[in-house]
Design a protein around this nucleic acid. Sequence first.
DNA 1: TAGATTGTTAATCGATTAACAATC
DNA 2: TAGATTGTTAATCGATTAACAATC
Lengths: 209, 209
Amino acid sequence: MPRRENVSMSVIRRLPRYYRFLRYLKKTGVTRISSTELSAKLGLTASQIRQDLNCFGGFGQQGYGYIVSQLCDEIANILSLSSQYPAILLGAGNLGSAIGAHMSFQEEGFHLIGIFDQSSDRIGMELANLKIRDVAELEKFCKKEKPVMAIFCVPRDAAAELAEKLYGLGIRSFWNFSHYDIAMQYPDAVVESVHLNDSLMTLCYRISN
Amino acid sequence: MPRRENVSMSVIRRLPRYYRFLRYLKKTGVTRISSTELSAKLGLTASQIRQDLNCFGGFGQQGYGYIVSQLCDEIANILSLSSQYPAILLGAGNLGSAIGAHMSFQEEGFHLIGIFDQSSDRIGMELANLKIRDVAELEKFCKKEKPVMAIFCVPRDAAAELAEKLYGLGIRSFWNFSHYDIAMQYPDAVVESVHLNDSLMTLCYRISN
DNA sequence: TAGATTGTTAATCGATTAACAATC
DNA sequence: TAGATTGTTAATCGATTAACAATC
């Protein structure tokens, strides 16, 4: 009997990969797949895949395997991808612009409702069908629009300052591309960090060793 | 007596974080730190930090701790950050442009020497002090300039095709932002993947649960 | 029914933490 | 020297893998 509580992050982090691959299978017309086939394609063990899925429910059929489209939907459901959490983007520089464009295109789970920057060069410009706002308007905007998630594409110092402000305004989830460590400062916040530099450094290590 | 072989990825992935924080300490004038202090700041155990560092050498002094600038340099050295591996960027769309700009700014371990795209809108444009080239020139360029690493900021199908070509040309390391799974196809390649969608989906899960 | 494959329990493996002797 | 903190070994914890009974 599966429980959704206490599912480890190791498991959670594999779900999007399953989802991505199942969607691809579905697109290419595959209707049925066994854990063994899946494991071969993903480079995991069949055991792990069954173990992972059974944290959430018995989605397969003994002797048959899994129905691709059904499993795909189940995972989308587990991840709550049909949510439309209102999100704001902080920083419309190179990375911020890319993320903004990406968000407006993808829209799985989140919906971008505001973009903020402090540079007068950028304020007023259009990005992802939104006009870039002055970060000075942030507080007013949040009180009115109640975003749930904030994306940090700003430098470290700005991130520290903005995190404090947004936390004060009740925002508890952050997608963090900055060098500032939000998770350490606000332990009850949900923080997902993407440190591109860190990623590149581990690549450098592995090439060299 | 530490050995550099067989250091687990869990350890490697923490090194850039140590490095980042130590550099910050150095900048703010801190000269000495103990594993206990570090652990409090980073939200890890002191034991783990000492364990991690001792995979590579005894960088501390009993009864004293670690000299910040020295430890910082040691980690930079372990990660081979003074390397200048020639790298190429594939795809100069929103994300590619952001990564390109980032690379030319940072230059830790890698040096961007070429940018390629297939869109005539972009070919010829300037990015990160480089002129965007036609992807048709890729093979010729690689034979001449011998890049060591390739950054994938292209859609899945283009990624599959380009990975095959570049692998054939001898490139064995990839920074992969695409949905295509290079690591599975070429097991002897060093692949570091950044799946922004996956990251966002785990955030969605955590908000919802 | 026989064959296949799941769901789940038990065994193994690896990573993290605790403890402490070595030593600055 | 006494106090502090490392380096390192041993204990614990969690995640992965193997095995197999349940069942489609």
